[in-house]
Simulated scan of single mutants.
Amino acid sequence: MGTVTLGVSIAVPEPYGSLLQERRAGFGDPVAHCIPTHVTLLPPTEADDSALPSVEAHLTRVAAAGRPFPMRLSGTGTFRPLSPVVFVKVVEGVSACTQLQQRVRDAEGPLVRELQFPYHPHVTVAHGIADEAMDRAYEELSGFEAEWTCTSFALYEQGADGVWRMLREYAFGAGPKLPGVPNVPAQGTAVDAPATTC
């Protein structure tokens, strides 16, 4: 039996996803191209590879019970000094993301786990880099804005090279498009960067 490292997240769609990924790379974050820009629902979690079918069945049920909801990003925040992270803030969709991640980690499912910190949906744009670069990320993205209708989430696996790759996308159960909120295309898959950068 082998183990896999899994994550569940909402990908930030285009054109926003690639823009933030390139900005993150520009701030000197070496893992910028290892995963599409995202809002985490389940942080990196080890599981037996034999559990993948039950994980996928569980996430299918979670998605079937969900409905599309509006997401809006605006401005920046930071977890410093507790954690060396600068992020773009989720200002609409917080409660929906919170409920969704609770269902993903449900005690009855295969992905139950405790979190290191209380759940706070966000989009990381700098992590563990020099303070000056963290400050620059905080300042330069302070005016960032984006909005879209969130219609799905995805399961990712981290490869031996450190790159996160999508295994499957899970669309929410049928629901009407929310008026006045644009749908935008999904961000492409992560760049296959050399292991030394991930």
Rank of each mutant, 00 (worst) to 15 (best):
E145G: 09
R165T: 11
G175R: 03
V90E: 05
E108D: 13
V181R: 05
A146H: 02
F144I: 05
P182T: 07
T151P: 00
P84V: 09
S74Q: 14
P110K: 10
Y170C: 08
Q101Y: 00
Q158E: 12
R80D: 09
Y119I: 09
F87D: 08
V90W: 03
Q101P: 00
P121A: 11
P118T: 10
V90L: 14
A126E: 03
P68K: 11
G77V: 07
G93Y: 10
E92S: 11
C97I: 04
P110G: 11
T78K: 05
S95Y: 01
V163R: 05
V123T: 11
L141A: 10
T76C: 10
R136Y: 01
A137Q: 06
A171H: 08
R103W: 00
Q99S: 13
M71S: 06
A133L: 09
A146E: 05
R165W: 00
V125D: 05
E145F: 12
S74I: 01
G162V: 04
G75Q: 09
L115D: 10
Q102T: 11
S95H: 12
E169K: 15
P179Y: 10
D106W: 08
T78E: 11
M134Y: 03
V94K: 09
P81L: 13
R136W: 00
Q158T: 12
W148Y: 07
S142K: 13
V90P: 03
A107P: 01
S74R: 15
L115V: 06
F79L: 15
Y156N: 02
F117D: 03
G143F: 03
V94Q: 12
W164F: 10
A174E: 14
F87R: 07
T98A: 15
R80V: 03
C97Y: 06
G143N: 12
P81Q: 12
